[in-house]
């Protein structure tokens, strides 16, 4: 597969959960291409379907309409081919395994050889060399999450799916891990899909930012980042960064001026980004209920 080929390609993708209270539309009409080597962030308020979309890529949820390919095949085949590593919101390390045994878990399951070399290399990538024999509870939360990233990297899948991996960590640890993740991405040339609800995090990390909105979950904007590839942490104080962050904030949070614009367009051609808000609630200035 050539470098420019798309790793994930979704067309008119929809997913509806049937619940006892009726159908919940988690995803509606999502069209998205993720190219090889991109770092794509998904951002939006909770309930906008960003995690669901990641789970559809991972074949953990089944779409109910539209089509999606991963590496040119169905998500199911991609999962069977072990095409991706998945990093969850919580580290989900097995407490009865040491760090190196945790990293070895996918290798054991997939029956891969040269485990010791792979473990050493991936632990080095996430700066955990020297902690091989520790048990998870002996490590801090940030180190545990790094170990879970190492576990996702150990079998060398080209696609890394990350579902709010740093959501539970404090801001200082988070900044540190963000810059380490960027270095790791630059070294490994992997394609990364990254779910977050932090705008600075999304802007700092991504080459492409996908803004989503809830009820029904759908993509409202796709913003290409014009920031340079080399991103020290203090890039976040540059005007370029702040301009991009403001654009993302406008796109996903309908603060005053954005909402009035959205409402103005509601009655005309473009649909309101908040399908759940009626024209009345828009004009009265009350935000739509967030979920």
């Amino acid at each position: 597969m050539s470098l420019a080929a798309s790793v994930v390609s979704a067309k008119n993708l929809g997913l509806t959960f049937s619940t006892n209270d009726g159908d919940v539309i988690a995803l509606s009409d999502v069209n998205l291409e993720i190219g090889a080597g991109e770092f794509v962030s998904f951002i939006g308020p909770s309930g906008c379907g960003k995690t669901t979309f990641l789970r559809v890529i991972a074949d953990l949820e089944q779409p109910t309409s539209g089509s999606i390919t991963v590496n040119g095949t169905s998500p199911s085949d991609a999962r069977l081919n072990r095409a991706y590593g998945y990093v969850f919101q919580a580290p989900a390390l097995y407490p009865w395994r040491t760090i190196e045994q945790n990293v070895a878990l996918p290798l054991e399951i997939m029956g891969l050889s040269d485990r010791a070399a792979r473990i050493q290399r991936t632990l080095e990538l996430v700066n955990l060399t020297g902690f091989e024999k520790k048990f998870p509870w002996q490590l801090s939360g940030g180190m545990q999450q790094r170990a879970s990233i190492a576990r996702a990297l150990s079998f060398d899948a080209d696609l890394l799916l990350m579902d709010e991996p740093f959501g539970a960590l404090d801001e200082i640890v988070r900044d540190h891990l963000n810059s380490e993740l960027l270095k790791l991405w630059a070294r490994t040339k992997k394609t990364i899909a990254f779910v977050t609800h932090s705008i600075p995090e999304a802007v700092y990390l991504s080459t492409k930012i996908v803004v989503m909105s809830p009820r029904p979950g759908r993509v409202t904007d796709i913003i290409e980042s014009d920031l340079p590839a080399e991103r020290p942490l203090d890039i976040r104080e540059t005007p370029e960064f702040l301009r991009l962050a403001a654009r993302v904030r406008d796109a996903c949070a309908p603060a005053t001026r954005t909402r009035s614009r959205a409402c103005a367009s509601f009655s005309t051609a473009r649909p309101c980004p908040f399908s759940s808000c009626s024209p009345r609630s828009c004009s009265s200035g009350t935000p739509p209920p967030s979920g």
Binding site: D59, L60, R79, Y86, I109, M110
Partner: peptide, 8 residues
Amino acid sequence: DLMRTYNA
């Protein structure tokens, strides 16, 4: 889910 992503 983790086990499922590994196709265990």
